[in-house]
């Protein structure tokens, strides 16, 4: 094929060819770049899904590994804190009645009589929980006054302290009485942990029941325990 003889026609033809070639290139560019963008997008989605799947599988495997350990921890908390009375429980919001009952039981066992049991109050320990949060427990303190010998006092403390690993004698004053050398004037402060949120024991009991029924991971209580309501 020969180009036209006339210069103007030749230029027109060349111009047309250039336009067609450019249009073709543009068309190819649009099609190819669109295709590659879609492919890139899919590849990104695939990578993201793979990462999420891997994380999910790790979480599920971790859960399967920790189920037993969690059940043991909950059992241990329930046993020591609730069933064995390690954490003082209130009676309709009154802790003094519970504390009096415990102290009088041990006093009776130790052959001493308590003169006074007065409430000091509830205190919060600074930054007990992780990340500086208020912890799950508060301290409930009472002051006890009595007159007894040192051996009786040791017996009373031994009874209290060996039966509850969490109770703590915070303060103690023993003053000798010149007229009664075998009976001292004693006063001590004793502190129990109490639940910061009184609904927590019930949640723990629920977990134990669910552990027994193998329903732990479907528990509605878990979403309460694990959700924002605890923050």
């Amino acid at each position: 094929m020969k180009l036209p003889e006339k210069r103007s026609e030749r230029l027109k033809l060349i111009g047309l060819i250039v336009v067609v070639v450019l249009a073709a290139f543009y068309g190819v560019y649009v099609a190819v770049s669109g295709h590659f963008a879609r492919v890139r997008e899919q590849a990104t989605k695939i990578d993201e899904l793979k990462r999420k799947l891997e994380a999910a599988q790790t979480a599920v495997k971790q859960m399967e590994r920790d189920l037993g350990a969690n059940a043991m921890i909950v059992d241990s908390i329930i046993n020591t804190a609730l069933r064995q009375g390690g954490v003082l429980r209130d009676r309709l919001g009154n802790y003094l009645l519970s504390a009096q009952e415990i102290l009088e039981t041990y006093a009776k066992r130790s052959n001493v009589s308590l003169d006074t049991i007065t409430e000091v109050g509830i205190s919060q320990l600074p930054q007990m929980g992780s990340k500086g949060q208020a912890g799950n427990f508060r301290g409930y303190t009472v002051r006890v006054g009595l007159q007894c010998g040192l051996h009786e006092l040791v017996r009373l403390f031994a009874n209290i302290e060996t039966n509850n690993p969490y109770v703590s004698v915070l303060g103690l004053s023993i003053v000798g009485q010149p007229d009664k050398p075998d009976r001292h004037s004693v006063s001590f402060e004793i502190q129990w942990p109490i639940w910061a949120d009184t609904s927590l024991p019930a949640m723990l009991e629920t977990q134990v029941q669910q552990n027994a029924g193998g329903m732990l991971t479907n528990s509605p209580a878990l979403s309460v325990v694990g959700g924002e309501e605890r923050s």
Binding site: A59, D66, N70, V154, Y166, P193, L204, Q207, L222
Partner: peptide
């Protein structure tokens, strides 16, 4: 699994706090 892990962490924290109460006391008898 995530809900469980949150609960598990919370239970561990309670246990740790109780351990703290045990370790921080002095047996006066």
């Amino acid at each position: 699994a995530l809900r469980f892990m949150e609960t598990y962490r919370w239970n561990l924290e309670i246990q740790k706090e109780l351990e703290g109460w045990r370790k921080s006391r002095l047996d006066w008898h």
